[in-house]
Write a protein that binds this DNA or RNA. Structure first.
Lengths: 184, 184
DNA sequence: CCGATAAAAAACTAAATAGTTCAATATCTC
DNA sequence: GAGATATTGAACTATTTAGTTTTTTATCGG
Protein backbone atom coordinates (compact mmCIF):
# COMPACT_ATOMS: atom_id res chain seq x y z
CA UNK A 1 0.00 0.00 0.00
CA UNK A 2 2.76 2.43 0.82
CA UNK A 3 2.62 5.89 2.23
CA UNK A 4 -0.79 7.60 2.21
CA UNK A 5 -0.96 11.04 0.64
CA UNK A 6 -1.36 13.97 2.95
CA UNK A 7 -3.98 15.94 1.07
CA UNK A 8 -7.29 15.52 -0.70
CA UNK A 9 -8.21 16.78 -4.12
CA UNK A 10 -10.97 18.90 -2.61
CA UNK A 11 -8.55 20.50 -0.19
CA UNK A 12 -6.21 21.48 -2.98
CA UNK A 13 -9.02 22.94 -5.09
CA UNK A 14 -10.35 24.89 -2.15
CA UNK A 15 -6.95 26.45 -1.53
CA UNK A 16 -5.84 26.94 -5.13
CA UNK A 17 -9.12 28.49 -6.24
CA UNK A 18 -8.71 31.84 -4.47
CA UNK A 19 -5.27 32.25 -5.98
CA UNK A 20 -6.47 31.78 -9.55
CA UNK A 21 -9.55 33.81 -8.72
CA UNK A 22 -7.50 36.77 -7.69
CA UNK A 23 -4.49 36.58 -10.00
CA UNK A 24 -5.88 34.78 -13.00
CA UNK A 25 -4.10 32.00 -14.84
CA UNK A 26 -1.04 33.67 -16.34
CA UNK A 27 -0.07 35.60 -13.24
CA UNK A 28 -0.25 32.56 -10.96
CA UNK A 29 2.98 30.60 -10.69
CA UNK A 30 3.42 26.99 -9.66
CA UNK A 31 5.43 28.31 -6.75
CA UNK A 32 2.46 30.32 -5.52
CA UNK A 33 0.19 27.31 -5.90
CA UNK A 34 2.58 25.20 -3.87
CA UNK A 35 2.63 27.82 -1.15
CA UNK A 36 -1.14 28.29 -1.12
CA UNK A 37 -2.04 24.62 -1.14
CA UNK A 38 0.82 23.39 1.00
CA UNK A 39 1.29 20.69 -1.62
CA UNK A 40 4.53 20.40 -3.50
CA UNK A 41 4.77 20.22 -7.29
CA UNK A 42 5.09 16.43 -7.22
CA UNK A 43 1.81 16.15 -5.40
CA UNK A 44 0.10 18.65 -7.64
CA UNK A 45 1.29 16.85 -10.76
CA UNK A 46 0.12 13.45 -9.59
CA UNK A 47 -3.35 14.86 -8.99
CA UNK A 48 -3.58 17.19 -12.01
CA UNK A 49 -2.20 16.87 -15.51
CA UNK A 50 -0.80 20.39 -15.59
CA UNK A 51 -1.50 23.96 -14.54
CA UNK A 52 -4.33 24.25 -17.04
CA UNK A 53 -5.97 21.13 -15.70
CA UNK A 54 -5.78 22.45 -12.15
CA UNK A 55 -7.21 25.77 -13.26
CA UNK A 56 -10.19 24.21 -14.97
CA UNK A 57 -10.78 21.97 -11.95
CA UNK A 58 -10.80 25.07 -9.74
CA UNK A 59 -13.22 26.78 -12.09
CA UNK A 60 -15.59 23.82 -11.99
CA UNK A 61 -15.26 23.64 -8.24
CA UNK A 62 -16.11 27.32 -8.00
CA UNK A 63 -19.18 27.03 -10.18
CA UNK A 64 -20.42 24.02 -8.26
CA UNK A 65 -20.09 25.78 -4.94
CA UNK A 66 -21.78 28.87 -6.36
CA UNK A 67 -24.58 26.71 -7.69
CA UNK A 68 -25.07 25.18 -4.27
CA UNK A 69 -25.84 28.59 -2.83
CA UNK A 70 -29.09 28.42 -4.77
CA UNK A 71 -29.51 32.17 -4.98
CA UNK A 72 -31.79 31.85 -7.99
CA UNK A 73 -33.83 28.84 -6.96
CA UNK A 74 -35.22 30.07 -3.65
CA UNK A 75 -38.99 29.94 -3.54
CA UNK A 76 -40.88 31.99 -4.35
CA UNK A 77 -39.15 32.83 -7.61
CA UNK A 78 -39.20 36.48 -8.58
CA UNK A 79 -37.47 39.85 -8.61
CA UNK A 80 -36.27 39.35 -5.07
CA UNK A 81 -34.09 36.43 -6.16
CA UNK A 82 -32.70 38.48 -9.03
CA UNK A 83 -31.81 41.28 -6.64
CA UNK A 84 -30.16 38.91 -4.18
CA UNK A 85 -28.21 37.36 -7.04
CA UNK A 86 -26.89 40.74 -8.12
CA UNK A 87 -26.11 41.80 -4.58
CA UNK A 88 -24.57 38.62 -3.23
CA UNK A 89 -23.50 36.75 -6.34
CA UNK A 90 -20.16 38.52 -6.73
CA UNK A 91 -18.29 37.54 -3.58
CA UNK A 92 -16.07 39.71 -1.49
CA UNK A 93 -14.23 37.30 0.77
CA UNK A 94 -11.01 39.18 1.36
CA UNK A 95 -8.81 38.58 -1.63
CA UNK A 96 -11.24 36.89 -3.97
CA UNK A 97 -13.40 39.57 -5.48
CA UNK A 98 -16.16 39.45 -8.03
CA UNK A 99 -16.82 36.26 -9.91
CA UNK A 100 -14.04 33.81 -10.76
CA UNK A 101 -15.90 32.77 -13.88
CA UNK A 102 -16.32 36.31 -15.20
CA UNK A 103 -12.74 37.10 -14.29
CA UNK A 104 -11.59 34.18 -16.39
CA UNK A 105 -13.25 35.51 -19.50
CA UNK A 106 -10.39 37.91 -20.14
CA UNK A 107 -7.95 35.00 -20.39
CA UNK A 108 -9.75 32.76 -22.84
CA UNK A 109 -6.96 33.34 -25.35
CA UNK A 110 -4.46 31.47 -23.20
CA UNK A 111 -6.87 29.11 -21.43
CA UNK A 112 -7.79 25.63 -22.68
CA UNK A 113 -10.96 25.43 -24.74
CA UNK A 114 -12.51 23.51 -21.89
CA UNK A 115 -12.54 26.68 -19.80
CA UNK A 116 -14.55 28.46 -22.45
CA UNK A 117 -17.03 25.61 -22.48
CA UNK A 118 -17.41 25.54 -18.71
CA UNK A 119 -17.99 29.28 -18.53
CA UNK A 120 -20.48 29.51 -21.36
CA UNK A 121 -22.41 26.50 -20.14
CA UNK A 122 -22.71 28.08 -16.73
CA UNK A 123 -23.82 31.37 -18.23
CA UNK A 124 -26.51 29.57 -20.15
CA UNK A 125 -27.68 27.96 -16.94
CA UNK A 126 -27.72 31.29 -15.10
CA UNK A 127 -29.70 32.81 -17.91
CA UNK A 128 -32.30 30.07 -17.73
CA UNK A 129 -32.61 30.47 -13.98
CA UNK A 130 -32.89 34.24 -14.30
CA UNK A 131 -35.56 33.84 -16.97
CA UNK A 132 -37.53 31.51 -14.72
CA UNK A 133 -37.51 34.06 -11.93
CA UNK A 134 -38.44 36.85 -14.28
CA UNK A 135 -41.18 34.87 -15.93
CA UNK A 136 -42.90 34.40 -12.60
CA UNK A 137 -43.33 38.17 -12.41
CA UNK A 138 -45.26 38.22 -15.70
CA UNK A 139 -43.41 41.09 -17.35
CA UNK A 140 -44.45 42.65 -20.68
CA UNK A 141 -41.20 41.77 -22.42
CA UNK A 142 -39.80 38.32 -23.12
CA UNK A 143 -38.24 36.92 -19.90
CA UNK A 144 -35.25 35.56 -21.80
CA UNK A 145 -34.51 38.99 -23.26
CA UNK A 146 -34.61 40.55 -19.82
CA UNK A 147 -32.54 37.70 -18.43
CA UNK A 148 -29.68 38.14 -20.88
CA UNK A 149 -29.64 41.84 -20.14
CA UNK A 150 -29.50 41.16 -16.40
CA UNK A 151 -26.57 38.84 -16.95
CA UNK A 152 -24.67 41.56 -18.78
CA UNK A 153 -25.26 43.95 -15.91
CA UNK A 154 -24.09 41.26 -13.52
CA UNK A 155 -20.92 40.81 -15.56
CA UNK A 156 -20.30 44.51 -15.31
CA UNK A 157 -20.73 44.51 -11.54
CA UNK A 158 -18.25 41.67 -11.34
CA UNK A 159 -15.38 43.27 -13.20
CA UNK A 160 -15.99 46.54 -11.42
CA UNK A 161 -14.92 44.75 -8.26
CA UNK A 162 -11.43 45.30 -9.56
CA UNK A 163 -11.97 48.96 -8.73
CA UNK A 164 -11.69 50.16 -5.18
CA UNK A 165 -15.26 51.38 -5.15
CA UNK A 166 -17.49 51.13 -2.14
CA UNK A 167 -20.02 48.46 -1.37
CA UNK A 168 -22.54 51.30 -1.05
CA UNK A 169 -22.15 52.42 -4.65
CA UNK A 170 -22.61 48.87 -5.84
CA UNK A 171 -25.80 48.52 -3.81
CA UNK A 172 -27.08 51.82 -5.14
CA UNK A 173 -26.46 50.73 -8.72
CA UNK A 174 -28.30 47.48 -8.16
CA UNK A 175 -31.26 49.27 -6.64
CA UNK A 176 -31.48 51.69 -9.55
CA UNK A 177 -31.22 48.74 -11.92
CA UNK A 178 -33.95 46.78 -10.15
CA UNK A 179 -36.26 49.77 -10.25
CA UNK A 180 -35.72 49.97 -13.98
CA UNK A 181 -36.33 46.33 -14.82
CA UNK A 182 -39.34 45.88 -12.58
CA UNK A 183 -41.23 48.03 -15.06
CA UNK A 184 -40.43 45.86 -18.08
CA UNK B 1 22.33 65.60 -35.68
CA UNK B 2 23.04 62.00 -36.59
CA UNK B 3 20.79 59.39 -38.03
CA UNK B 4 17.06 60.17 -37.91
CA UNK B 5 14.85 57.56 -36.32
CA UNK B 6 12.64 55.56 -38.58
CA UNK B 7 9.42 55.72 -36.58
CA UNK B 8 7.24 58.14 -34.66
CA UNK B 9 5.89 57.72 -31.17
CA UNK B 10 2.34 57.91 -32.50
CA UNK B 11 3.02 55.18 -35.02
CA UNK B 12 4.30 52.86 -32.33
CA UNK B 13 1.34 53.53 -30.04
CA UNK B 14 -1.08 52.94 -32.86
CA UNK B 15 0.47 49.57 -33.64
CA UNK B 16 1.21 48.41 -30.10
CA UNK B 17 -2.25 49.32 -28.77
CA UNK B 18 -4.19 46.52 -30.51
CA UNK B 19 -1.73 43.96 -29.18
CA UNK B 20 -2.15 45.02 -25.56
CA UNK B 21 -5.85 45.47 -26.18
CA UNK B 22 -6.25 41.89 -27.25
CA UNK B 23 -3.70 40.07 -25.13
CA UNK B 24 -3.43 42.28 -22.08
CA UNK B 25 -0.17 43.21 -20.40
CA UNK B 26 1.18 39.93 -19.04
CA UNK B 27 0.49 37.91 -22.14
CA UNK B 28 2.20 40.38 -24.47
CA UNK B 29 5.91 39.78 -24.98
CA UNK B 30 8.50 42.27 -26.10
CA UNK B 31 9.01 40.05 -29.09
CA UNK B 32 5.40 40.46 -30.12
CA UNK B 33 5.61 44.21 -29.65
CA UNK B 34 8.68 44.34 -31.88
CA UNK B 35 6.89 42.38 -34.54
CA UNK B 36 3.71 44.45 -34.36
CA UNK B 37 5.39 47.82 -34.34
CA UNK B 38 8.26 46.97 -36.65
CA UNK B 39 10.49 48.67 -34.11
CA UNK B 40 13.25 46.79 -32.40
CA UNK B 41 13.75 46.68 -28.64
CA UNK B 42 16.43 49.39 -28.78
CA UNK B 43 14.00 51.73 -30.45
CA UNK B 44 11.19 50.90 -28.06
CA UNK B 45 13.43 51.41 -25.05
CA UNK B 46 14.67 54.79 -26.23
CA UNK B 47 11.09 55.96 -26.62
CA UNK B 48 9.58 54.25 -23.55
CA UNK B 49 11.05 53.52 -20.14
CA UNK B 50 9.86 49.91 -20.08
CA UNK B 51 6.97 47.67 -21.03
CA UNK B 52 4.77 49.23 -18.37
CA UNK B 53 5.44 52.70 -19.66
CA UNK B 54 4.53 51.65 -23.18
CA UNK B 55 1.37 50.01 -21.93
CA UNK B 56 0.20 53.11 -20.09
CA UNK B 57 1.03 55.25 -23.10
CA UNK B 58 -1.12 52.94 -25.25
CA UNK B 59 -3.93 53.15 -22.74
CA UNK B 60 -3.84 56.95 -22.76
CA UNK B 61 -3.68 56.92 -26.53
CA UNK B 62 -6.71 54.68 -26.65
CA UNK B 63 -8.76 56.82 -24.30
CA UNK B 64 -7.86 59.97 -26.20
CA UNK B 65 -8.94 58.49 -29.50
CA UNK B 66 -12.13 57.19 -27.94
CA UNK B 67 -12.81 60.62 -26.47
CA UNK B 68 -12.40 62.18 -29.89
CA UNK B 69 -15.28 60.10 -31.21
CA UNK B 70 -17.53 62.30 -29.09
CA UNK B 71 -20.25 59.68 -28.78
CA UNK B 72 -21.60 61.33 -25.64
CA UNK B 73 -21.29 64.99 -26.62
CA UNK B 74 -23.33 65.01 -29.81
CA UNK B 75 -26.14 67.54 -29.67
CA UNK B 76 -28.86 67.17 -28.72
CA UNK B 77 -27.87 65.34 -25.55
CA UNK B 78 -30.22 62.56 -24.52
CA UNK B 79 -31.06 58.86 -24.51
CA UNK B 80 -30.05 58.55 -28.14
CA UNK B 81 -26.44 59.35 -27.23
CA UNK B 82 -26.51 56.83 -24.40
CA UNK B 83 -27.77 54.17 -26.78
CA UNK B 84 -25.13 54.96 -29.38
CA UNK B 85 -22.48 54.84 -26.68
CA UNK B 86 -23.59 51.38 -25.61
CA UNK B 87 -23.87 50.14 -29.17
CA UNK B 88 -20.72 51.62 -30.67
CA UNK B 89 -18.52 52.27 -27.67
CA UNK B 90 -17.10 48.76 -27.46
CA UNK B 91 -15.23 48.38 -30.73
CA UNK B 92 -15.06 45.31 -32.89
CA UNK B 93 -12.22 46.02 -35.30
CA UNK B 94 -11.05 42.51 -36.02
CA UNK B 95 -8.78 41.50 -33.19
CA UNK B 96 -9.41 44.32 -30.77
CA UNK B 97 -12.68 43.62 -29.07
CA UNK B 98 -14.57 45.44 -26.39
CA UNK B 99 -12.91 48.26 -24.52
CA UNK B 100 -9.17 48.32 -23.88
CA UNK B 101 -9.73 50.24 -20.67
CA UNK B 102 -12.25 47.78 -19.25
CA UNK B 103 -10.09 44.88 -20.35
CA UNK B 104 -7.20 46.34 -18.38
CA UNK B 105 -9.13 46.34 -15.15
CA UNK B 106 -8.46 42.64 -14.63
CA UNK B 107 -4.72 43.29 -14.59
CA UNK B 108 -4.50 46.10 -12.07
CA UNK B 109 -2.59 43.82 -9.73
CA UNK B 110 0.39 43.68 -12.06
CA UNK B 111 -0.04 47.07 -13.73
CA UNK B 112 1.58 50.30 -12.51
CA UNK B 113 -0.59 52.45 -10.28
CA UNK B 114 -0.71 54.98 -13.07
CA UNK B 115 -2.89 52.62 -15.08
CA UNK B 116 -5.40 52.51 -12.28
CA UNK B 117 -5.46 56.30 -12.17
CA UNK B 118 -5.93 56.64 -15.92
CA UNK B 119 -8.79 54.17 -15.99
CA UNK B 120 -10.67 55.54 -13.00
CA UNK B 121 -10.28 59.12 -14.18
CA UNK B 122 -11.73 58.17 -17.53
CA UNK B 123 -14.60 56.33 -15.90
CA UNK B 124 -15.39 59.41 -13.85
CA UNK B 125 -15.43 61.46 -17.04
CA UNK B 126 -17.71 58.99 -18.79
CA UNK B 127 -20.04 59.03 -15.84
CA UNK B 128 -20.28 62.82 -15.92
CA UNK B 129 -20.99 62.79 -19.65
CA UNK B 130 -23.60 60.08 -19.23
CA UNK B 131 -25.22 62.04 -16.41
CA UNK B 132 -25.38 65.16 -18.59
CA UNK B 133 -27.16 63.24 -21.33
CA UNK B 134 -29.53 61.66 -18.87
CA UNK B 135 -30.26 64.91 -17.09
CA UNK B 136 -31.46 66.45 -20.34
CA UNK B 137 -34.21 63.85 -20.41
CA UNK B 138 -35.52 64.97 -17.01
CA UNK B 139 -35.86 61.56 -15.40
CA UNK B 140 -37.45 60.99 -11.98
CA UNK B 141 -34.31 59.51 -10.45
CA UNK B 142 -30.98 61.24 -9.90
CA UNK B 143 -29.10 61.36 -13.24
CA UNK B 144 -25.82 60.44 -11.56
CA UNK B 145 -27.38 57.31 -10.08
CA UNK B 146 -28.67 56.25 -13.47
CA UNK B 147 -25.34 57.12 -15.05
CA UNK B 148 -23.30 54.89 -12.78
CA UNK B 149 -25.68 52.05 -13.42
CA UNK B 150 -25.36 52.56 -17.18
CA UNK B 151 -21.59 52.44 -16.85
CA UNK B 152 -21.79 49.09 -15.08
CA UNK B 153 -23.95 47.71 -17.86
CA UNK B 154 -21.47 49.06 -20.37
CA UNK B 155 -18.64 47.32 -18.53
CA UNK B 156 -20.56 44.10 -18.74
CA UNK B 157 -21.12 44.45 -22.47
CA UNK B 158 -17.41 45.03 -22.90
CA UNK B 159 -16.16 41.91 -21.18
CA UNK B 160 -18.84 39.84 -22.84
CA UNK B 161 -17.05 40.59 -26.08
CA UNK B 162 -14.67 37.87 -24.98
CA UNK B 163 -17.48 35.47 -25.70
CA UNK B 164 -18.25 34.43 -29.25
CA UNK B 165 -21.77 35.82 -29.05
CA UNK B 166 -23.49 37.50 -31.93
CA UNK B 167 -23.75 41.20 -32.60
CA UNK B 168 -27.51 40.66 -32.70
CA UNK B 169 -27.72 39.48 -29.11
CA UNK B 170 -25.72 42.47 -27.96
CA UNK B 171 -28.04 44.82 -29.81
CA UNK B 172 -31.07 43.10 -28.33
CA UNK B 173 -29.68 43.47 -24.83
CA UNK B 174 -29.01 47.13 -25.35
CA UNK B 175 -32.50 47.71 -26.63
CA UNK B 176 -34.03 45.94 -23.65
CA UNK B 177 -31.82 47.97 -21.38
CA UNK B 178 -32.72 51.27 -23.02
CA UNK B 179 -36.42 50.47 -22.71
CA UNK B 180 -35.89 49.89 -19.03
CA UNK B 181 -33.98 53.04 -18.23
CA UNK B 182 -36.12 55.38 -20.29
CA UNK B 183 -38.78 54.90 -17.66
CA UNK B 184 -36.60 55.99 -14.75
C1' DC C 1 10.73 -5.51 12.21
C1' DC C 2 11.53 -5.75 7.18
C1' DG C 3 10.88 -4.91 2.57
C1' DA C 4 7.77 -3.34 -0.88
C1' DT C 5 5.37 0.67 -2.25
C1' DA C 6 3.79 5.09 -2.77
C1' DA C 7 4.32 10.03 -1.60
C1' DA C 8 7.00 14.06 -0.83
C1' DA C 9 11.05 16.90 -1.30
C1' DA C 10 14.51 18.61 -3.88
C1' DA C 11 17.46 18.97 -7.67
C1' DC C 12 17.36 19.63 -12.36
C1' DT C 13 16.02 21.06 -17.37
C1' DA C 14 14.70 23.74 -21.10
C1' DA C 15 12.49 27.55 -22.70
C1' DA C 16 10.87 32.13 -22.40
C1' DT C 17 11.09 36.51 -20.48
C1' DA C 18 12.34 41.69 -19.72
C1' DG C 19 15.94 44.38 -19.98
C1' DT C 20 21.10 45.75 -21.25
C1' DT C 21 25.16 46.34 -23.83
C1' DC C 22 27.87 46.88 -27.66
C1' DA C 23 29.01 46.94 -32.33
C1' DA C 24 27.36 48.22 -36.91
C1' DT C 25 25.17 51.62 -39.73
C1' DA C 26 23.02 55.49 -41.71
C1' DT C 27 22.53 60.44 -42.02
C1' DC C 28 23.37 65.20 -40.90
C1' DT C 29 26.68 69.19 -40.49
C1' DC C 30 30.56 71.36 -41.83
C1' DG D 1 33.47 63.75 -48.39
C1' DA D 2 34.93 63.27 -43.38
C1' DG D 3 33.65 62.88 -38.88
C1' DA D 4 30.45 63.39 -35.27
C1' DT D 5 26.18 61.53 -33.67
C1' DA D 6 22.13 59.18 -33.03
C1' DT D 7 19.68 54.96 -34.43
C1' DT D 8 19.42 50.22 -35.27
C1' DG D 9 20.36 45.36 -34.87
C1' DA D 10 22.04 41.63 -32.65
C1' DA D 11 24.30 39.29 -29.10
C1' DC D 12 24.08 38.79 -24.28
C1' DT D 13 22.41 38.41 -19.19
C1' DA D 14 19.86 37.18 -15.41
C1' DT D 15 15.62 35.60 -13.87
C1' DT D 16 11.51 33.18 -13.95
C1' DT D 17 8.71 29.81 -15.70
C1' DA D 18 6.34 25.03 -16.28
C1' DG D 19 7.41 20.62 -16.09
C1' DT D 20 10.56 16.21 -15.14
C1' DT D 21 13.55 13.23 -12.85
C1' DT D 22 15.81 11.55 -8.98
C1' DT D 23 16.34 10.95 -4.23
C1' DT D 24 14.59 10.66 0.25
C1' DT D 25 11.12 9.44 3.48
C1' DA D 26 7.02 7.61 5.52
C1' DT D 27 3.69 3.92 5.97
C1' DC D 28 1.60 -0.38 5.08
C1' DG D 29 1.31 -5.54 4.71
C1' DG D 30 3.40 -9.63 6.09
Amino acid sequence: MGRPKGFSREEVLEKAMPVFWKHGFADTSLQELERATGVNKSGLYTEFRDKEDLFVACLRHYLESQGKRGLLTKEPLGWKNVETFLKNGPLNKGEQQGCFSINSMREFAILPDEAYGVVTENRALLQRLLALNIESEKPFMAPSAIAEMVLSFFSGLCIERNLKSSKASSTRKIETFMTAIRSL
